[in-house]
Design a binder for these strands. Sequence first.
DNA 1: TATTGTTATACTCTATAACTATA
DNA 2: TATAGTTATAGAGTATAACAATA
Lengths: 152, 152
Amino acid sequence: MTPTILDHLLLVSELFQRDMARAFAGTTLTASRVRVLWLLQHRGPSTQRELAQELDVSARNVSGLVDALEASGHVLRSPHPTDRRATVVTLTDAAAEQMAAMQSDHAQLSVTLLDAVAPQDREPLERGIVAIAARLAELVEAAERAGAEAAR
Amino acid sequence: MTPTILDHLLLVSELFQRDMARAFAGTTLTASRVRVLWLLQHRGPSTQRELAQELDVSARNVSGLVDALEASGHVLRSPHPTDRRATVVTLTDAAAEQMAAMQSDHAQLSVTLLDAVAPQDREPLERGIVAIAARLAELVEAAERAGAEAAR
DNA sequence: TATTGTTATACTCTATAACTATA
DNA sequence: TATAGTTATAGAGTATAACAATA
């Protein structure tokens, strides 16, 4: 069987993940921890509850990830100014710089990849991928709703 | 910032993985175990060493995955006919059927997704994705070679 | 000697449940 | 009562290292 569009899409994601893993090997960073840093860079200082919601993981999981990132000097925990139950997580300067560099690498990679596509194919490619992502999002959401319904 | 092509690609893969996880929730199957089954369906009966090589994971990891799949009735272990060190892993009939159904769902999904793309965009889309996957594969391979070189 | 798969050990991600402090 | 985060516990994926059986 010839690979389908979906197969090519999944291949891209597999390659990307493999490269991430390689890039972080030998450091204390992992894909999950980087997702936390990435989110903090985009949102700014956040409570652990906010991180858990955005990442769609449990509060317990966030505790562990923040523990590790705090130990490695990537984030700081500080008390919330008004809610004494809550903890605010902030990127350290070094981590903020690192994330800025990562973001710029990411943008550069996107350019490099697009550069491999014939110029006249670029616009339809972009439209096509956006359409596929939207359709897939609908399908997944419908499946999740159906699952939630069945569980009642 | 507007999302780049790469962001859209990664969104597709994230949605896909989320749907996989949802589909297997409540069963003993997981993404890793399904990868083993998928591979067995494509390769036919294989030794654990072959599985470890194809999946690019450790022998230990394969032992655990096969243990779980054997317990759940998805695979059988049998002695290798000529090499008494090796174990041959085979899909059970039920698992083979299940994988055939999954493969057909996968093909169907690919059609459904392509259906969301404007007809005149489909060919350039496909060409574009193939080009991106190829370029990314080059980049990742080069990075891996560079890393291996640096480690010497 | 080299290879196949297992046992031993350890780390990470993840979840639920019980609990503490606070709202 | 409800919420934020931690401790306790557990399952799964993954790795390396030591080991047994076999090649």
